[in-house]
């Protein structure tokens, strides 16, 4: 698979596309003022899945540690908020941030165990870890309400969720971009390409891996926390839902692993698709997810963003004029 992501030497283009993202996302501040209903809900859900895909990208896309159990951090965040709000009557916004912190700390701790394990061993271990947490959530009824779940007081409306999750998406995108441009990003890409070689060059791989894992977990946790107070009800099966990991992976792979734009595009495409199909044909949607994963890996392993760039360049070559600055 040639150059997954890291587009060195296209910084101008990257900066432009980033300003475009910032502009687009700023525009998304407006809708709830004029609309309040189905479309706002849809947009908010899209933002949530996109933020999750972007957070997955920070660890798995950049460092090559494919986490199939990343939904565990969504669950930790959701349960942290659920417990803080119902048992200790915390404010939901504060609780969401604390949920993120809980995920962050959990990731530091779990990372010490899991990130020593490499390649496919890591992929399955992360999944197994998530399933362990799910079993604990099902069984520790005094804390988590067991299979009955937790019911949160309904105080916050759609608009609050919309802005909170948009903020999360903006923050995770900005952080993903910042990490990619920093020495940490280069360290992570070096680890992905050859961890032993990276260590030989003096990169403290453990430090960077755990940091990336924890940052990534933080945002997944915040998203889970916001989700918890928005739907006002969480149970082990919706908080620790392995479909979430599938969504993150498919979105990021479709858009382009390791790119900042990729998970955003993938997140939008697949959440919209889910919205169209889920209610009437849930299995068809999952079949499409599975098939997309296969087809994308087979035919556009670099992701759709890379292909779009190539098409634009090709159009330039054959003389089709496109505005220089999109």
């Amino acid at each position: 698979m040639p150059k997954l992501g890291l587009a060195v030497g296209r910084e101008g283009a990257m900066k432009r596309s980033l300003m475009l993202i910032a502009l687009a996302l700023t525009l998304f501040l407006i809708p709830p003022i004029v609309e309040k209903g189905y479309y706002i809900n849809l947009l908010a859900i899209i933002f949530m899945y996109t933020a999750l895909a972007q957070s997955w990208n920070i660890i798995s896309g950049y460092s090559g540690y494919w986490s199939f159990g990343h939904y565990m951090f969504f669950g930790i965040g959701a349960y942290a908020v659920g417990i803080l709000v119902t048992k200790l009557s915390f404010d939901a916004y504060l609780a969401s941030v604390l949920g993120g912190l809980a995920s962050f700390l959990a990731a530091v701790f779990l990372g010490l165990i899991l990130l020593r394990i490499k390649g496919p061993y890591f992929a399955i271990s992360s999944l197994v870890m998530a399933e362990i947490l799910k079993v604990i959530a099902i069984n520790e009824e005094w804390l988590t309400g067991g299979g009955n779940g937790l019911i949160l007081p309904p105080r916050y409306a759609l608009r609050e969720f919309y802005y909170a999750i948009l903020l999360t998406l903006l923050a995770v995108t900005a952080i993903a971009y910042a990490i990619k441009r920093s020495s940490m990003g280069y360290a992570l890409f070096a680890i992905r390409d050859d961890e032993t070689a990276a260590e030989t060059y003096g990169i403290n791989s453990t430090k960077y891996k755990i940091l990336a894992f924890a940052i990534s977990a933080f945002f997944a946790g915040v998203a889970g926390g916001c989700f918890a107070w928005f739907v006002t009800y969480i149970d082990p099966y919706s908080a620790f839902d392995s479909t979430l990991a599938l969504m993150m992976i498919v979105s990021a792979v479709f858009g382009g692993i390791g790119t900042v734009m990729g998970p955003i595009i993938g997140g939008f495409v697949f959440t919209l698709l889910m919205e169209v199909l889920w209610v009437s044909f849930p299995y068809v949607y999952l079949i499409i997810l599975g098939a997309s994963l296969i087809l994308v890996m087979r035919f556009i392993p670099d992701g759709i963003v890379e292909r779009l760039v190539q098409i634009v360049q090709l159009m330039g070559k054959v003389g089709i004029k496109i505005p220089a600055r999109i």
Binding site: M1, P120, Y283, L286, I287, A291, L293, I294, M297
Partner: peptide, 26 residues
């Protein structure tokens, strides 16, 4: 012969698993 062969095949067969399981479910 691809560089990330193990990661790619893991993901691709993961996709296949989702595909087969949900076709069966359907």
């Amino acid at each position: 012969g691809m560089r990330y062969f193990r990661a790619i095949t893991l993901v691709v067969t993961y996709g296949l698993a989702i595909l087969l399981i949900n076709i069966t479910r359907y």
